[in-house]
Design a protein around this nucleic acid. Structure first.
Length: 811
RNA sequence: GCGGGCGUGGCGGAACGGUAGACGCUCCGGCCUUAGGAGCCGGUGGGCCUGACGGCCCGUGGGGGUUCGAAUCCCUCCGCCCGCACCA
């Protein structure tokens, strides 16, 4: 007789040991006859202990991995750590603990938790991105990009975080602040390493149509790439004999241009003003703007400022001389850093014109007040007058092209990816600077360039690596003369842009991956992670896949075929944070209730793609449910109940067997659409129903219902699922084929016919499933409560929905 | 400002255009028990009529529309959330 207490502390380690012993989740690279499925959750950044968000991500991913396995797939489900990064380094600055040590401690905490949660991971493929055996190949990829011209070094105005003393990628600046530490970001002119992600802008945009991603994530990526079609138009400054091209999306408004504006960073601004009476004023203005924080500068609400340059340019379409200005609302990094201003049809130009008393000339009759951006016939536009602006758009572009004054053009918001970081805890950039040879790549045979130990991690505006003199000074690989290593490290997003490839072949010492291994497993069939990576990581990884494919190192230009973004876990409706004191520690939950309860509950409380609120009361309910299932299984097993359904079940037996098949059908459908919350509800129903007929149903039906519940709950609560299934059947549920509902048992002899009169429910009655529409109508008309609403009125229509309802329309 | 999403009981949430509120939490009642914070069974949107069985009305943010029938589709307004934002 079983001990009748559900004891996860005994059950969970026992099954975890069994899975480890059997290497249940390991897959080899030897092909077999099963189709492959690569199920991957975004790799964790190891900092401290796992939080509740990790529990959710890996609970979702594990449910998918289990479901695929039991549907006959060979599932690759690996784990690793995104181990380089600022937090470990900042911690090192504060405490003196080497980032490697604090990172290692955190990795161990993650490993412990993931094992305690019973996540089905192939641990043989595990690695951290900070290990030389991994980052050797990150460096190798850098060299391949360098060779193809996709990595290059250039001076540019870049975002600088004064607190972290490093440059940042555009994507890491949020509202003018450093994404990591919140400090206001400055702009600095520095020479840095970039990846040419902009070369891939169109493909990054177009290929979104080929992948199964949430629409809102695709939209975010499209907006970030920000493709705009328009024209480049050349305005000439006759005084200096220089042509200034501008980008515009509105060539149709060219006759409405009344002035011309350049960005303060434009290299010609001071040169243009030189010698005019505006020279001092311009210099002062430019200095003032450059000192402004990105946040202040970017505020669209603040009043327009600017200074005349004392020069003019010629409008190519009508020969008009337009006064030139410098103003901070024009950005150097977009278009050409200069614009034609059409105050009648652009809000910002309008505002500027009003402030400076500049002419505003309407060129489109759109029937609205100025400034307007609507469509209509052109006016004041010379030969183009009267034509609709949409058509004039094309005609004007053609005219510009013919005259050699412009051409159709496309612009992107996307910038090249700035990858240098002046920080210690990252992957060293494998190049050497030689006075004779310039930038020299480290020979592939000399990789990895191992990150040296240093004493002082504090950033001083240059990488802490610069202090490691022994390491920095090397012989030039090309000419052998003394040279110096690059001391910047790579953005950690580089590390995570290819890790999913390394999982396919993690131990390869001769190459980043074996082509066959990667061709076999890639792409990732189901990727799971937080929506916070919708732009950064997901864009960079797509770029890498495309670049590597172009280099013939890979066959898949989209790395993640399907993406699932899970919502946040909140507490009391608010984001969890230590400062708010509303954190829920997943380790504490799984210690108290068991990992199954923790995992199952986080999936049960709401749709996994939405934000869900954690409640400490609610988790008791899930624990109760699992305990009920376990006790049911233990009791029935103790009574020797067979797990097979009775051959010709009747009465309660039949009803219960049907309920089990209903649950199979429901859970299977819900799994496919990631509706884990309703899938778990269906198992609740099956367990509840089994208890209800516990005294009257036969052991065969009861055993079948309980073992089916165990089988269905396994993807969410694998330990309980395995234990109950084993007790009832003696078999390993994880090797069992996912159950299939018997269509005959999903059908019933009768159904509840809902009868409506004028759309309102007036009665319900049991009707034979085989009844024809006419028979259903007849039944409906006879229903007692229906007659009270129908008698004495004219029946004008009868709507029949077979198997569901009849609606009688009366007047 | 532009783009996307959401709004359902006391709470989390269910509902191919077809029984609104599955399942869980909470609360209430019953059984079991020396006891029960254990377990098992039942009830739990609001209002009204009825002794009872049962019945009627209202109800998915507000208003309007399409439909035999709308939480679901369309229009409009309100509120909340997310992304982008002086991008020419």
């Amino acid at each position: 007789m079983a001990d009748h207490r559900y004891d996860p502390r005994e059950i969970e380690p026992r099954w975890q040991a069994a899975w480890e012993r059997e290497r249940a989740w390991e897959v080899s690279n030897e092909p077999d006859d099963r189709p492959k499925a690569y199920v991957l959750e975004m790799l964790p950044y190891p900092s401290g202990e796992p939080h509740i968000g990790h529990l959710k991500t890996y609970s979702v991913g594990d449910a998918i991995a289990h479901f695929r396995r039991r549907n006959g797939y060979r599932v690759l489900h690996p784990m690793g750590y995104d181990a380089f990064g600022l937090p470990a380094e900042n911690h090192a600055i504060k405490t003196g603990v080497h980032p490697r040590d604090s990172t290692q401690a955190s990795i161990e905490a993650f490993q412990r938790q993931f094992r305690a949660w019973g996540i089905s991971i192939d641990w043989t493929r595990e690695f951290g991105t900070h290990e030389p055996r991994y980052y050797r190949w990150t460096q190798w990829i850098f060299l391949q990009l360098l060779r193809r011209g996709l990595a290059h070094r250039r001076e540019a105005a870049v975002k600088w975080c004064p607190n972290d003393a490093t440059v940042l990628a555009n994507e890491q600046v949020v509202d003018g602040r450093c994404e990591r530490c919140g400090a206001e970001v400055e702009v600095r002119q520095l020479e840095q390493w970039f990846f040419r992600i902009t070369d891939y802008a169109d493909r990054l945009l177009d290929d979104l149509d080929s992948i199964e991603w949430p629409e809102h994530v695709k939209t975010m990526q499209r907006n970030w790439i920000g493709r705009s079609e328009g024209a480049e138009v050349v305005f000439r400054c006759e005084q200096l004999g220089i042509d200034y091209p501008v980008f515009t999306t509105r060539p149709d408004t060219l006759f409405g241009a009344t002035f011309f504006v350049m960005a303060p960073e434009h290299p010609d601004v001071l040169r243009l003003a030189a010698g005019t009476d505006r020279e001092d004023e311009v210099r002062e203005y430019v200095n003032h703007v450059l000192a402004e924080s990105v946040e202040t500068r970017g505020d669209a609400e603040k009043p327009k400022t600017g200074v005349p340059l004392g020069r003019t340019v010629t409008n190519p379409v009508n020969g008009e001389e337009l006064p030139m200005f410098v103003a901070d609302y024009v950005l150097m990094e977009y278009g050409t850093g200069a614009i034609m201003a059409v105050p009648a049809h652009d809000g910002r130009d309008h505002e500027f014109a009003r402030t400076f008393g500049l002419p505003i000339r309407r060129v489109i009759e759109c029937g609205e007040e100025l400034p307007c951006t609507g469509d209509g016939p052109l006016v004041g536009s010379g030969p183009f007058d009267g034509g609709h602006n949409r058509e004039a758009y094309e005609e004007i572009v053609q005219w510009l092209d013919r005259e050699g004054r412009g051409h159709a053009s496309v612009n992107y918001r996307l910038r090249d990816w700035l990858v240098s970081r002046q920080r210690y805890w990252g992957c060293p950039i494998p190049v050497v600077y030689c006075e004779e040879c310039g930038i020299v790549p480290v020979p592939e045979a000399d990789l990895p360039v191992v990150l040296p130990d240093v004493e002082d991690y504090a950033p001083r505006g240059r990488s802490p690596l610069a202090a490691a003199e022994d390491w920095v000074n090397v012989d030039c690989p090309a000419c052998g003369r003394p040279a110096r290593r690059e001391t910047d490290t790579m953005d950690t997003f580089v590390d995570s842009s290819w890790y999913f490839l390394r999982y396919c072949d993690p131990d390869n010492e001769g190459a980043a991956w074996d082509r066959e291994a990667v061709d076999m497993w890639m792409p990732v069939d189901q990727y799971i992670g937080g929506v916070e990576h919708a732009i950064l990581h997901l864009m960079y990884a797509r770029f890498f896949a495309k670049a590597l494919t172009d280099m013939d190192l890979l066959d898949v230009s989209e790395p993640f075929r399907a993406l699932f973004t899970q919502g946040m876990v909140t507490k009391d409706g608010a984001k969890m944070s230590k400062s708010r004191g509303n954190t829920v520690d997943p380790a504490e939950i799984s210690d108290r209730y068991g990992a199954d309860t923790a995992r199952c509950h986080i999936l049960f409380i709401g749709p996994p793609d939405q934000d869900v609120d954690w409640s400490d009361e609610g988790v008791e309910g899930t624990h109760r449910f699992l305990a009920r299932l376990w006790r049911l299984g233990a009791d029935l097993a103790g009574e020797g109940a067979p797990a097979g359904p009775p051959a010709d079940a009747q009465g309660d037996d039949l009803a219960l067997v049907r309920k089990a098949h209903w649950a199979i059908e429901k859970v299977t459908g819900d799994m496919r659409r990631f509706a884990f919350n309703t899938a778990i509800s269906a198992v609740h129903e099956l367990v509840n129903e089994t208890y209800r007929v516990r005294a009257t149903a036969g052991p065969g039906a009861l055993g079948f219902a309980a073992s089916t519940a165990a089988s269905l709950v396994f993807p969410f609560a694998p330990h309980v699922g395995a234990d109950v299934f084993d007790r009832l059947t003696g078999r390993a549920v994880w090797t069992e084929r996912w159950p299939e509902a018997d269509p005959d048992l999903l059908e019933t002899d009768t159904f509840t016919l809902v009868v409506q009169v004028n759309g309102k429910v007036r009665d319900r009655l049991e009707a034979p499933a085989s009844a024809s529409p006419d028979e259903l109508k007849a039944l409906a008309r006879e229903a007692a409560n229906v007659r009270a609403h129908v008698d004495g009125r004219e029946l004008v229509k009868e709507v029949v929905v077979p198997g569901r309802l009849v609606n009688l329309v009366v007047r």
